[in-house]
């Protein structure tokens, strides 16, 4: 019975992420267009909302090309290993007072740990493509994602120290409004590191379309390509939800359904901010990217952790 419920929740998470990705693509096109003084999609339905329904069958029916040279079984299934961990990470996000789909006692670590399995999927798909561009993209992605995990985890750790718990719902119960100014540096570090973690601009060197075609998913087409895109938008949605909850207070601002609405609006603001950043800043160079992580973000996160630790002593 528990197993069946787990299966049902897994399916719900996949639908949530897939639906979110489809809406995210449309929203990103609108945001990007406004930033560049264009209108974006507007032919199908009001403000082009039906465009997202048109996009899905297009991706479903495109030819599924598997290169002759590729390691075929791994090439076919590696995208799933990129997508699944991200769908799993949504499970521990606290949506409602005292409720998360999977309210684990170690949920905070779970959230940080599982998306890192996705790096393996990226490396495997890059390797199995048997293509130089994909290999370079995959290696960049691995270096970047493993490195940015460090400041990201340290930033979340400062909230964990303040709350004194690894359980997301308990962290939310302990949350106070003055944690926002106190952990502001941590939130900024978390936000930047999350953008790097999801391989988005200005940190999208692993995909860098001007030099690497599309990096680790250069050889993918049709629905397998769409799984990578769903993974990317899924990471965006999941990181925004988690950041809005543990750093910005999520549902704690208002009681009941209004709280849930505030939480979702906060997450949507974060999602839009990530898109805004992507379409505003130029891409970094690979060495600048790594230097930024180790010499700026990591020390900042450690300072934030020390500050949080000192304050936690007085709580």
């Amino acid at each position: 019975m528990t197993f069946l419920w787990g299966l049902l929740w897994g399916l719900a998470a996949v639908m949530f992420i897939a639906g979110g990705a489809v809406i995210g693509v449309w929203w990103e096109r609108k945001v990007a267009a406004r930033i560049q003084m264009r209108l974006g999609p507007q032919q199908l339905g009001p403000a082009g909302v039906l465009q997202m329904i048109a996009d899905v069958p297009k991706l479903l029916f495109k030819e599924d090309i598997v290169p002759d040279n590729a390691d075929k079984p791994i090439f076919r299934y590696a995208p799933m290993a990129v997508f699944a961990p991200i769908a799993m990470s949504v499970a521990v996000i606290p949506f409602w007072a005292g409720w998360a789909p999977l309210d684990s006692t170690v949920g905070m670590v779970f959230y940080l740990a599982f998306p890192s399995i996705g790096v393996l999927g990226i490396l495997l798909s890059a390797w199995s493509s048997h293509n130089t561009l994909a290999t370079i993209g995959g290696m960049r992605a691995a270096a970047q994602m493993v490195s940015y995990e460090v400041p990201r985890s340290l930033a979340v750790l400062s909230v964990i120290v303040l709350a004194g718990s690894l359980q997301p719902t308990e962290v939310m119960d302990a949350w106070q409004w003055w944690w926002i100014p106190l952990t502001f540096v941590g939130f900024v570090v978390y936000f930047i590191a999350s953008i790097a973690e999801m391989n988005r601009g200005p940190f999208d060197l692993p995909e860098a379309e001007s030099e690497l075609v599309a990096g680790y998913f250069s050889d993918y087409s049709g629905f397998r390509w769409a799984i990578f895109m769903m993974g990317e938008y899924g990471a965006l949605i999941s990181a925004s939800l988690f950041g809005a909850a543990v750093f910005l207070g999520g549902y704690r601002w208002l009681p009941g359904v209004a709280g849930l609405a505030v939480f979702l609006v906060l997450a949507m603001v974060l999602i839009t901010a990530v898109m805004w950043i992507k379409w505003t800043f130029p891409r970094l160079r690979q060495d600048q990217l790594m230097t930024f992580c180790w010499t700026v973000l990591t020390p900042l996160a450690i300072v934030q952790l020390v500050v949080a630790g000192v304050v936690a002593l007085w709580l």
């Binding site: 890192s116 790096v119 393996l120 490396l123 495997l124 691995a142 270096a143 994602m145 493993v146």
Partner: peptide, 11 residues
Amino acid sequence: YVGGVLVLVLF
């Protein structure tokens, strides 16, 4: 191990 060591080995 999965997110750190294994990725570094593959890298």
